[in-house]
């Protein structure tokens, strides 16, 4: 029983990472209705920027917020330069552009900062909380930050005009134009926000997994899984989905004999596919009804 509780708790701790990533994925999905493959690499790149700033002697929190700002601007710039010209291109071309961005960021990070792993500081400390050894101060801090971020996003989308305009642009771009919403800029803003959230995720994740150009690959897949389990359209669902994936992964790794550490990812993905079988649009998603 104690083992079980332990696994749940440490599952929640890793789940916090996935929840953070899933949140960033859902953000961009809401803005552009695409899943961005390059999201993880963008987050990794942001984290390297933070690392560089800290190396240059900036205090942690200044580096933290500066990185968020840089990432936001970077996200907007990427949308305006890379994706705006592709506006009329087929959807599949967009996905290829994501793959291109993935390759570019991964390779650039390796070129600038090389592929050796680097440790990244945590503002919360690594000491264990509640004297149990189950969950560290950093894990707790990460979960708290994710929840705060979620709350802020909720307020932004429900109670600000610009949030309303972004939702309108995503759900019905033609109608949004007809009420004067600048849809192109809303999409760019969505990219900026997603990049900023990704940066937060990266900076929170890096102290746990260490910083290196490939750190985000598996996390991105888990993040996708969390987002999809959560239904893709609900930031809250994404966070819950992320935690759920973390717990399931841990329990499967512990209790299913053939799984072990190597197969954790496979099992988690299999479970997600299973969830999709019964709830094809995720646990908190809504089926889009199209009129004929």
């Amino acid at each position: 029983m104690e083992l079980f509780a332990h696994q749940i708790l440490s599952g929640l701790a890793t789940g916090g990472i996935y929840a953070c990533m899933a949140l960033a994925i859902v953000m961009i999905y809401q803005a552009i209705h695409h899943l961005n493959f390059a999201q993880g690499e963008m987050a990794m790149f942001s984290t390297f920027i933070a690392w560089q700033l800290i190396e240059w002697g900036f205090p942690y929190w200044i580096a933290f917020f500066l990185t968020i700002a840089i990432s936001f601007v970077g996200g907007v710039v990427i949308e305006r330069t890379v994706f705006k010209p592709l506006h009329r291109a087929p959807v599949l071309a967009h996905i290829v552009a994501f793959i291109a961005l993935f390759a570019i960021f991964n390779s650039l990070a390796g070129f600038i900062w090389d592929f050796t792993i680097k440790s990244f500081p945590t503002p919360f400390g690594q000491q264990s909380l509640f004297g149990s050894g189950l969950i560290s101060a950093h894990d707790t801090g990460m979960i708290v930050v994710t929840l705060v971020l979620l709350g802020l996003l909720f307020l932004f989308f429900r109670h600000t005009r610009i949030g309303l305009a972004m939702r309108a642009a995503a759900s019905n771009p033609d109608s949004a134009r007809l009420v004067g919403v600048r849809v192109g800029w809303m999409i760019a803003l969505g990219w900026g926000m997603a990049a900023a959230i990704g940066a937060v995720a990266g900076m929170l994740i890096a102290p746990v997994v260490f910083l290196e150009p490939n750190m985000m690959l598996a996390i991105l897949i888990y993040g996708f899984a969390g987002a999809v389990v959560g239904g893709l359209i609900s930031p809250g669902g994404a966070v819950i989905g992320g935690f759920a994936v973390g717990v399931v992964e841990n329990l499967a790794g512990t209790y299913v004999p053939v799984v072990g550490q190597e197969m954790k990812l496979t099992i988690a993905l299999a479970l997600i596919v299973a969830v999709l079988m019964f709830k094809p649009t995720g646990l908190f998603g809504a089926r889009l009804v199209t009129r004929v």
Binding site: R167, A168, S171, N172, S175
Partner: peptide, 13 residues
């Protein structure tokens, strides 16, 4: 102001 055919409602809002 354009009231389009099909009304252009933001259905989810």
């Amino acid at each position: 102001a354009h009231v389009p055919q099909g009304r252009g409602t933001f259905t989810a809002m």
